[in-house]
Write a protein that binds this DNA or RNA. Structure first.
Lengths: 258, 258
DNA sequence: GAGTGGTCTAGACCACTCG
DNA sequence: GAGTGGTCTAGACCACTCG
């Protein structure tokens, strides 16, 4: 029944605590990469729980790629993964801070405008609908890394009007209003810097930029924001980790034919 | 006990069949985006299985982001996702074919060479170890899309020597030898075309390319291949889908400082 | 053939949501 | 307070792996 464990940390469910414990053992090296995990039976005895609970814990470790295996064989510990929370991926501020650098912004332009065709399609609005538009240069330790052009859905105009766009994380501020981006779609491509891009990023026109176009959605699937972010190609890259189990990435051809 | 279902397709486990059935209903629109799924109890009755089996089916639908929800509320159907299997992501041939186009290759160079420092590190070898190197231009319907420089681990030299590199999918061929890439790491960046890149892709020097550096690993975590793929920036982009649950993507800064 | 993970059941209790 | 999903148990059978 594992009363000891249950008493220690009452909040989290058992299977989650067990998953965390195993994750910890992998991180400290007691379970090195390539080694095999104890059997489900052994783990069930060790933690004093049923096999079902162990399987739940292992499901979460499999889902994030920490372990892998197949029927009849003991599960193996994988290489450590490089993953980042969605918040860090979306928020330049959160990401920069997680690297120990100071994020700043220069607001080039902001205000309410009518949505152009592309923006309207992405935000699932009528062309010309009122959106809140912001163009910012984002810097880490005062070095310009990215230029960001974002349009926010009409429902966000009200809360956004009270935010200081220059130095705060928009996501952190929206969070306080109970609004958060639960999922997103990103489109990565290579792009030649325009004159404007180049000037703001300290590059020459035509320099290669990594372009990330993205739509952020609420928990209910409503589009909240549409953004065109252009990163200095010489400074930023994106890492993607896939296993044959989990794969959320797609290579696509641009639609300039047929 | 659901003998009908079990008899219909004996191979796949019940929970997988149920997940597929629900996926189908979402795709055909009987369960539209935003609608709520029937309760676990109702589904258990409908399919004649226990609640545990339904929960297994739903776990797989949650894992790939098809549905989402929280305790006490009925689960909601998400927007359709764009995902691609790892095979399609790795294999230019498989991907091109899935788009109804004909993949071809022009082999620029191939043969056994010594691994340079970067290659050796990626494949976890000693610098100078013998690897099999291939440089190919990849075309879809005769249009050049990508130039690919791949180094294969020593264990693959033997099987690769029998393959016709010009027109076959290396992955499909290796599969026949029982070798497959089970997971991979990708690094995406923007890159200015070199003179060589430009000539082979029909671009001007300095044109923006989408560069994908990747390492492919076997099921046991051994590196099998290291590749530097450069896509025409005007033709190819990568789509990434994330939810706050699953996220395998990371933004990184290049390591040209401290 | 022993061990192991994959599947499935039937039932219990709890926390949360909703009207 | 009824409905719903989250957690957990105890036990069963099966397919696969390994020596």
């Amino acid at each position: 029944m594992s009363t000891e464990l249950r008493d220690l940390m009452k909040t989290a469910p058992l299977h989650q605590q067990i998953a965390e414990t195993i994750r910890g053992e992998i991180q400290t090296g007691s379970l090195p990469t390539g080694s095999r995990l104890p059997s489900e039976h052994a783990l069930a005895q060790r933690f004093g729980v049923s096999r079902g609970t162990i399987r739940q814990a292992r499901a979460s470790l499999r889902a994030d790629g920490t372990i892998a295996g197949s029927q009849g064989r003991r599960l193996a510990v994988n290489r450590p993964q490089l993953t980042q929370s969605l918040t860090e991926l979306l928020s330049f501020s959160a990401w920069t801070e997680s690297l120990g650098k100071t994020p700043t912004s220069i607001v080039i332009e902001s205000g309410v405008t009518g949505a152009d065709e592309e923006c309207a399609e992405m935000l699932e609005l009528q062309t010309g609908s009122t959106v809140f538009h912001v163009t910012r240069v984002r810097l880490a330790d005062n070095a310009p890394l990215m230029i960001e052009r974002t349009a926010f859905a009409p429902v966000l105009i009200e809360p956004l009007s009270t935010i200081d766009l220059a130095d705060s994380s928009i996501y952190a501020e929206l969070d306080k209003h109970g609004i958060s981006v639960a999922s997103a779609r990103h489109l990565l491509s290579a792009f030649a810097a325009t004159k404007v891009d180049a000037r703001h990023l300290g590059l020459t026109t035509g320099a290669p930029l990594l372009r990330v176009q993205r739509v952020g959605y609420s928990l209910h699937g409503e589009p909240l924001e549409w953004s065109d972010d252009r990163y200095r190609g010489d400074q930023i890259n994106f890492g993607i980790e896939n296993s044959s189990v989990v794969s959320g990435v797609v290579r696509r051809m641009s639609n300039q034919e047929n």
